[in-house]
């Protein structure tokens, strides 16, 4: 009898915290995703104005966006920048990560802090500084300004992700390769890089997403050129049409796909297949 009471009590005690946790987590999830869900639903309206829920559904605004020259140009510019920025960011960030990990220990902390500071620096401040420099060199409103500017905020992410991979990398693997006849370069190429590939992939995807979504810094540097976020902003300035919802949904889709790839790669590789 006493035993039964105890076990009932235990059940009572262990159930409620879990229920509260589930409810709380659901609320947070709802809070985070509701705006996006509403936006996506709205984007499928057939009307000429935004409303929720839409009276009629259709892909009218997607068609308009896809065939609009303004949106095409903006998307093309954003993709161009992101495609140039990603490999550059990956190479430069990886070199910095190697330097920090393998170089002299003295001053490492300070240099690392400076190198990754753009992650926490207000982008307004960064944008203002870059704007001044771009004016000086007369390169604003061009790829010559956009690409380096984006690099300043993407490289820190590569430094962090590749740096983390390098920290867990067993240096004796590289030494083994060298004793087997590989030069320093080929040892890194054949052994180190494949093994730290989760960090490289993460760094590359972060670079792409951040460059593709970047608004503040690009806003300072652009005059007539418009990247996708800039085009969205300027459209919003004049009117709120459902096209903006369609573009947002598309951007969201690209970002989401890349993020899923990132998580999947990270898990598969980190889960024991490659990293032991």
């Amino acid at each position: 009898m006493g035993k039964k009471l105890m076990s009932n009590l235990e059940g009572y005690r262990s159930l409620w915290p879990r229920r509260i946790l589930v409810i709380f987590s659901s609320l947070v999830l709802f809070f985070l995703t509701a705006p996006l869900v509403i936006l996506i639903i709205q984007s499928f309206t057939n009307e000429s104005y935004l409303s929720f829920p839409p009276p009629t559904y259709g892909t009218r605004w997607y068609t308009e966006v896809i065939y609009s020259e303004d949106w095409q140009n903006a998307t093309f510019l954003s993709l161009t920048i992101a495609i140039i920025v990603t490999p550059l960011s990956l190479v430069l960030g990886t070199l910095v990560a190697f330097g920090l990990e393998r170089g002299p220990k003295k001053g490492k902390q300070t240099i690392q802090a400076i190198m990754i500071s753009p992650m926490v620096l207000p982008h307004i401040v960064l944008g203002l500084g870059l704007f001044k420099i771009a004016l000086q060199f007369n390169i604003s409103d061009s790829l010559w300004a956009f690409v380096p500017a984006h690099l300043t905020i993407t490289i820190p992410f590569v430094i962090v992700t590749v740096g983390a991979s390098l920290q867990t990398f067993n240096i004796s693997l590289e030494e083994a390769a060298r004793s087997l006849g590989a030069s320093k370069f080929w040892a890194v190429w054949y052994i180190t890089l494949p093994i730290i590939s989760p960090g490289l992939i993460a760094g590359a995807i972060f670079s792409f997403i951040i460059s593709f979504d970047e608004f503040i810094i690009t806003f300072f540097l652009a005059t007539f050129q418009r990247t996708l976020p800039l085009e969205m902003f300027s459209t919003l300035m004049y009117q709120v049409k459902p096209s903006i919802a369609a573009v947002s949904a598309l951007t969201l889709a690209i970002t989401a796909i890349l993020t899923v790839v990132l998580m999947f790669r990270g898990q598969v590789v980190g889960g024991g297949k490659i990293i032991k």
Partner: peptide, 27 residues
């Protein structure tokens, strides 16, 4: 090291985790 004709076996073996046994040996 790569020009020394030295065969080295490490304490933790340092096998290349992303290569099969054959590829490890062939490296």
């Amino acid at each position: 090291p790569q020009n020394r004709k030295v065969g080295l076996v490490f304490q933790n073996y340092a096998l290349f985790p992303h290569m099969s046994v054959r590829k490890n040996v062939a490296f």
